[in-house]
Amino acid sequence: MYDFAYQKPASLADAVKALGAEDAKALAGGQTLIPVLKQRLNKPSVVVDLSRLGLSGISLTGETVTIGAMTTHATVANSADVKRAIPALAHLASLIGDEQVRHRGTIGGSLANNDPSADYPAAVLALGATIKTDRRTIAADDYFQGMFATALEPNEVITSVTFPIPAKAAYMKFNNPASRYAMVGVFVAKGPQGVRVAITGAGQGGVFRHAAYEAALAANWSADALNGITTPTDGLNSDIHASAEYRAHLIGVMAKRATAAAG
């Protein structure tokens, strides 16, 4: 780790201001940022801790679930409200990392980071969630812009994420055997915005929607509707754990299982 200054502002405005400094970095749960700093892969001038901004918590309306950016994965996984309204989302959160990671890592941090193998991006994209920041709201379809790339401006802070409650939804994750991040994760949803299927872990550009599956499931919501629809391998990741072909295959298996699980 290189030396850096540390600030823990008490207001969102102060945080945004502090993040305006050159090479400033926001700190949420630290589950990505701290390992990156320890490996000296990043050299921030100042680390701005977001934990005093009151950004954690879960609130419900009849149509939506809103989760504060600093809400931990464990809180989402164990929330009775989330389990009732969008059980697939609670299930997804319960699959992230391990117990320790889930008690530190946050939804805001995960989305800001947009790791191509992260789980939350699949839920956000498939459910058509809206990301609220200190200055605007961003639709999921506009938010994810490639691996580790998002629509966020350098000093922009995510404050919350609002998920429309779907009629049906499920997430199926195939773990990378070593890291247990998603090697392929498929989130299927039938919600106010129609049928949406998002794939994480597999694409070189991060999370993406699967148009062919969406069309098939919109016509017939059943696992069988996906039979015979193959996923092209271009643009899919290939590494020591999974070739692009294997990933393409797993997308099909996980999508069918998710559809079946969604009922």
Binding site: P177, N227, G228, T230, H241, A242, S243, Y246, H249, G252
Partner: peptide
Amino acid sequence: ASPQKIWAIIHSNRPRMAAE
């Protein structure tokens, strides 16, 4: 016997299985 390896073995022996 990683998942990828076993899948490739099954897949190459049952080439049509993947799409089914």
